[in-house]
């Protein structure tokens, strides 16, 4: 009795196995049963996470496979990046890359973009320098002259050494002759609490952060070559308009999607197509418009070229700040 049933079991098993083995040969990408994971190297609910979630929702509409966002945060953005580099280059794992990837790579925390290939560049989120309304500085000129009078007394906060605000704050400090006390905080929210509480004098924020605290924050200057497209922030001058002609601070975070090097071309093409459709969807375009994001769409090789440009802009700052590895 027992032998018979055991035999039966094994037989069924072999039958099922052979069935799967056949299915395995087809090699369709994406396998509708598998999930495509978009690794966001920051925690859920953060600024970067926010840019990608609506995009992923749109991407789902253009492929049979399920797409999930996975937040692997830690060590700047390098933990998530390294995790993508550890997984096979089969197109099932994408990385939410961008300026943070360049910065983490230059700091030697990860092999980063050297081991990645671009799928699509998405957008820029320009940074805004702001202070608490109660502080005495009315504009950027005020702030800089006050800082120059007593170097080191005015603190300039960023959202962490690994990210784009870190580079922007160091860049700004270098541009003004190192008169600020640059202090890293634990993410954008931590920085915002400390600026709102008056513990840190000046902060570098993204636009949506300023909007959330419009009643308490005074934006001084936008670190970008054009003004914000948001109605509420349109009055904020650019560096040039504020009277600083020849300063070049890389002030913003760029977001893109990358895969590990060695992903087959046909899979990359398919991914590019999915992202393009999602990007051009009405929902995502509206989302970017509402949040004042500046469109910066690049595909495949174009993105790789664009990364090199960002690297050029970053490398001088990183070298002077002693962060280059």
């Amino acid at each position: 009795m027992e032998k018979k049933s055991l035999f039966l079991l094994i037989f069924t098993l072999v039958f099922i196995l052979s069935n799967y083995a056949e299915g395995q040969k087809e090699e369709v990408w994406p396998d509708p049963e598998k999930s495509i994971t978009v690794v966001v190297p920051y925690s859920a609910g953060g600024g970067t996470d926010l840019i990608f979630r609506p995009l992923v929702e749109e991407m789902k509409k253009f492929t049979e496979a399920n797409i999930i966002v996975s937040n692997i945060s830690g060590a700047g953005s390098s933990k998530g990046t390294n995790e993508v580099l550890n997984l096979p280059a089969d197109g099932y794992t994408l990385l939410a890359s961008g300026t943070h990837t360049v910065s983490a790579t230059l700091q030697g925390l990860t092999d980063g973009y050297k081991e990645l290939e671009g799928i699509a560049g998405l957008n820029w989120d320009p940074f805004i320098v702001a202070v608490l309304k109660e502080k005495p500085w009315q504009n950027m000129q005020d702030l800089v002259s006050a800082a120059k009078k007593n170097p080191g007394t005015i603190s300039l906060g960023n959202a962490g050494m690994g990210g784009a605000t870190g580079v922007a704050s160091v860049g700004m400090n270098l541009a003004f002759g190192g008169v600020f006390n640059v202090t890293p905080f634990n993410g954008g929210k931590d920085l915002r609490v400390n600026v709102l509480g008056g513990h840190c004098d000046v902060g570098i924020f993204s636009q949506s952060e300023i909007l959330a605290n419009q009643d308490k924050l005074k934006p001084l200057v936008i670190l970008y070559n054009e003004r914000s497209r948001l109605k509420d922030l349109n009055g904020v001058p650019t560096l040039k308009e504020a009277g600083f002609e020849n300063l070049d601070v890389p002030g913003g975070s760029f977001r893109s999607i990358s895969v590990k090097k060695g992903t087959p071309e046909h899979i990359k093409d398919k991914l590019i197509e999915i992202v393009r459709q999602a990007y051009n969807s009405q929902t995502y375009q509206n989302f970017m418009k509402e949040n004042g994001l500046i469109l910066a769409y690049y595909e495949g090789k174009e993105l790789d070229e664009y990364f090199k440009k960002i690297e050029q802009a970053y490398i001088t700052i990183m070298r002077e700040a002693g962060l280059l590895r």
């Binding site: 055991l6 079991l9 094994i10 069924t12 098993l13 099922i16 196995l17 069935n19 799967y20 299915g23 509708p32 049963e33 049979e64």
Partner: peptide, 26 residues
């Protein structure tokens, strides 16, 4: 052996059903 086979059987059946549902649904 029996336990392993029993688990594998149930697991494989489950995968089979899910997979079948997927392709059928599509």
């Amino acid at each position: 052996t029996a336990g392993t086979i029993f688990t594998l059987l149930i697991y494989s059946l489950g995968r089979f059903i899910t997979r079948y549902l997927y392709s059928w649904g599509r």
